[in-house]
Amino acid sequence: MPDADTTGLTVGQVSARLGVTVRALHHWDETGLARPSLRTAAGYRLYTPADLERLHRVVVYRELGVGLDEIRTFLDDPTTDVPGALRAQRTRLTERIERLQRLGGELDRMIDAQERGPLLTAEQQAAIFGADWNPDWPVQARRRYADTPQWLQYAERAASRDPEDWQAIADAVTDLDRALADAMDAGAAPGTPEANRLAERHREVFAAYFPLTIEMQVLLGRTFESDPGFAAHYDTVRAGLAAWFRQIIDANARAHGIDPDTATWR
């Protein structure tokens, strides 16, 4: 056993010099990966320059993403093809970097979608949603609904969509508007099977934005009739459509045992 005058670097000194935790140094000692050559009379670890060199190599390999067992092989097995193993590790790191870059791009899209809704230029929005579309509407919706689970769901969907996806959604909405107008013209009364099917079709189409319960749909129906922007949209499709649409939504809710007068956003 070395005496108390034995010189070397303590665990704390090595930790500070190499930027690794004391816990990691203890673990490497216990597993035999990098043991200190010396001990004080009191049993404290002391690392020699040779120990420090080995530790430095361990740290370098670890930062390159090499596993501890493989590091041990690099250091202790002279037959190991270290260059070949490092090339393989470089390939793995390159693949991981590419995955992380893709994730970074997806995160950027998610952030943008959270902040402004559809990831489309103003020109693309006009081309897809029509000349009367206001690009500020998604921003206004975010101000109103940003703290709701539904806005998060909407943003998650928006982040993964391209112009073709939005065009398909816009086409589905246009087809629904036309079907609503045709049914109203044909005299379909609220509560009839045809009107109820259209109310359910609206929930299916709207699910492109976020899942819509019947109670939530009731509240939206009120907005469709009372909000000037929504009312103008539906009444442009057909005069009186906004009010008729709300009525068929309410009637469909009653058919499902829901009182429209007590509906809440849930």
Results as ranks from 00 to 15, higher is better:
residue 87 R to C: 04
residue 214 I to E: 11
residue 40 T to H: 00
residue 230 F to S: 03
residue 54 R to I: 09
residue 202 H to Q: 14
residue 65 G to L: 04
residue 225 E to G: 06
residue 37 S to R: 00
residue 147 D to Y: 15
residue 46 L to S: 03
residue 197 R to K: 11
residue 130 G to M: 06
residue 251 A to F: 15
residue 239 A to Y: 13
residue 147 D to K: 11
residue 140 Q to R: 15
residue 78 P to C: 04
residue 194 E to R: 05
residue 140 Q to L: 09
residue 15 S to T: 01
residue 108 D to I: 02
residue 26 H to M: 02
residue 123 E to A: 12
residue 82 V to N: 06
residue 128 I to F: 04
residue 90 R to F: 15
residue 254 R to M: 09
residue 37 S to A: 05
residue 193 P to L: 07
residue 228 P to H: 05
residue 117 G to Y: 05
residue 40 T to L: 02
residue 62 R to Y: 05
residue 248 I to K: 13
residue 161 R to S: 06
residue 136 D to K: 09
residue 253 A to G: 03
residue 39 R to S: 05
residue 193 P to H: 13
residue 198 L to M: 13
residue 86 L to W: 03
residue 227 D to S: 03
residue 252 N to K: 08
residue 238 R to Y: 05
residue 35 R to K: 06
residue 69 D to H: 12
residue 163 P to F: 04
residue 219 L to S: 01
residue 236 T to R: 14
residue 157 R to C: 08
residue 147 D to H: 15
residue 220 L to E: 10
residue 212 L to F: 08
residue 32 G to A: 08
residue 252 N to Y: 12
residue 252 N to T: 13
residue 118 P to Q: 01
residue 159 A to C: 03
residue 15 S to H: 09
residue 104 G to M: 00
residue 8 G to D: 03
residue 80 T to Y: 11
residue 105 G to P: 00
residue 27 H to M: 04
residue 94 T to D: 15
residue 111 I to N: 08
residue 61 Y to N: 03
residue 146 A to S: 13
residue 142 R to F: 12
residue 126 A to V: 11
residue 52 L to K: 04
residue 9 L to Y: 04
residue 43 G to Y: 00
residue 67 G to A: 15
residue 49 P to W: 05
residue 160 S to G: 05
residue 7 T to W: 05
residue 107 L to S: 10
